[in-house]
Design a protein around this nucleic acid. Structure first.
Lengths: 258, 258
DNA sequence: CGAGTCATTGAACGCAGTCAAAGCACGTGG
DNA sequence: CCACGTGCTTTGACTGCGTTCAATGACTCG
């Protein structure tokens, strides 16, 4: 993994200062204009199946990285949509808000996963993306990506699949929220995260879930207390082993059968 | 509206007969190879903003229509993905199933709306699309559409927005399922349907909802009894007027404030 | 060390689910 | 044309799961 680029000075940036910085991301701060060429995202967010002469075009596209502090927003609901992102390290949550102010976590993005598709249809982001821990993301300018997709069909294919995956992922989550009991929701969530860790080459049996119980509850449509109780019960049943945010899956098959 | 093209012979087509017919849609049956050129879908599923020399290309693309009987599946979960669709008349629901057999309604498509994006990421459909009433759809071959999107950027733009819209729509539904009370869910649903009717030029205050109470409940993550009770209560409060599937919104503002 | 955030656990309540029974609309066949 | 069957809807009574309220404990970071 690359070292995080240019963890910028002050830890407490005001909201207005942050949004002005976003206009010219890390690029502006000199040494932080890190090329993403050695970034592991290349295989992840981008195609399998590019010919060697096409690769440079892609590298020219994914040109900068940005670091996002824990709790900081990469983008906010309503922000103008310019870029897609790929989580390079760390993890993020996406949050959507009602007009009445109620917020709900609508997604979790682990290292290697794409982010920002919610902005495409309205030219503005529909949700906010907040770092669950100090994280870095690759920035992918959307219009440039579109141009590339017109030139390289495998690139187009990949972008469409990426969007299609999100459509399916969200539909699956609708099913979780609409049909499953509290126990089933938590089990399904743990299995989902486990599988996604495995897909990226990390341990599927043991991982840190940087979300709080409240985030999980919000994502799963239940209260933080119920999440906590459910995890405790799973532990007593010997399905998992939790110590705060560290989770180890003990009985995978048992968890599947909850 | 066009007359439905070639309402094919038998009303009770066996499942196997139906799937063999799907390979070569209505085109095979002679008089049914209806061009969609006068189809109102053209403005709906396709761009605002095509130059006049590009239009013919599009018309060549959207080449056939298909009629789907009430209760019949346009495609099923697991079917190979070849086409996108646009509902020309009638309405459809999308249904997803767990491995354990439980099914849930994941979407409602009214006339003028797009269908089938769930197939893109896996080359196979992730859910089934079932007609809520006798309906017709336009068929849009996906690979041809992709090619066109590489030639015409406004077409690409439109397809991406279409996918982006579905991403946002589903995220919003996740919020409905995760955060709202039964009353709020039903109110939100009615308002959503009303608004979508309005967008397509139909009455926003009065419409037929061809879903059953069970479908609605499934979509909203509640039981059919609760849906029914909620609608009854809304009626007593003077918010709506229901007679079975016919729904009239009496107090729009009141419904918004539920 | 103290303040704040996060997690856990308990007790009581309430919303929506479940079970059950009518009622209604529609189409089909006698 | 009516009788009947089927599928959908409505309404009631009771139950139970998950929420709410509350208190305590654990961990982190100035």
């Amino acid at each position: 993994m690359l070292t995080p680029t240019a963890a910028t000075a002050s830890s407490a940036v005001t909201s207005s200062a942050r949004s002005s910085r976003r206009a010219s991301p890390l690029r502006a701060s000199g040494r932080s204009a890190a090329r993403c060429s050695s970034c592991s995202m290349r295989q992840l967010c981008m195609p399998q199946g590019l010919s060697s002469d096409e690769l440079p075009k892609l590298e020219a596209l994914i040109c900068t990285a940005r670091s996002v502090q824990r709790g900081e927003a990469l983008y906010r609901s309503g922000d103008r949509f310019d870029n897609l992102y790929a989580v390079r390290s760390g993890s993020m949550k996406t949050v959507m808000a009602h007009r009445d102010g109620r917020e709900q976590v609508t997604g979790l993005r682990l290292a290697g996963e794409a982010l920002g598709l919610d902005g495409i249809s309205e030219d503005a982001h529909a949700c906010s993306a907040v770092a669950l821990e100090d994280s870095t993301v690759c920035i992918i300018p959307y219009t440039a990506l579109q141009t590339l997709c017109r030139e390289i069909s495998s690139m187009q294919e990949r972008l469409h699949k990426l969007m299609g995956e999100q459509i399916i992922r969200e539909a699956a989550q609708m099913m979780v929220l609409g049909s499953l009991s509290a126990d089933e929701r938590v089990a399904a969530f743990l299995l989902d995260v486990s599988e996604r860790h495995a897909q990226r080459g990390y341990s599927s049996a043991e991982f840190n879930l940087r979300m709080t119980r409240e985030d999980m509850g919000s994502y799963l449509g239940m209260t933080l207390e119920t999440v906590s109780r459910t995890l405790s019960r799973f532990q007593k049943r010997g399905l998992i082993d939790t110590q705060g945010k560290h989770i180890r899956i003990v009985d995978l098959e048992g968890l599947r059968q909850v």
